[in-house]
């Protein structure tokens, strides 16, 4: 699966985040999530399984995407966060509002 590629799992759209979700990549991810929300029903899973690094810009894109999805009556969940992503979510306390799901299947289930 390429960076940013999307696919649908039972009505939920899965967006694959890039290896480095940084200042350069964050705006692209935000645009893609916004478009996904417009085209679908607002349920989005961001697959972080291929993401080795996130910075505060990347977190901002996830929060922005979460807001867009909720405004459309949906939600945004994150899946498969690695070590660095988990550390950054914890230190910013964002793991309370972006609860990491172990895998895409877990995140897409029970919606």
């Amino acid at each position: 699966m390429n960076e940013y590629e999307t696919q649908v799992h039972g009505g939920v759209t899965v967006v694959r985040a890039p290896d480095r979700l940084d200042m350069v990549a964050a705006p692209k991810l935000k645009q893609l999530v916004d478009r996904t929300v417009q085209e679908g029903d607002g349920r989005v899973v961001v697959d972080l399984g291929g993401t080795s690094f996130v910075d505060s810009s990347g977190l901002g894109a996830l929060i922005g995407g979460l807001k867009t999805a909720r405004q459309a009556g949906g939600d945004l969940r994150i899946a498969a966060a690695g070590e660095q992503v988990t550390m950054v979510l914890r230190l910013t306390n964002l793991d309370r509002i972006l609860k990491p799901h172990p895998g895409v299947e877990d995140a897409a289930r029970g919606w």
Partner: peptide, 10 residues
């Protein structure tokens, strides 16, 4: 919590 910026230096 839902602010998108301001987390970098902290």
């Amino acid at each position: 919590d839902l602010e998108e910026t301001g987390r970098g230096l902290p």
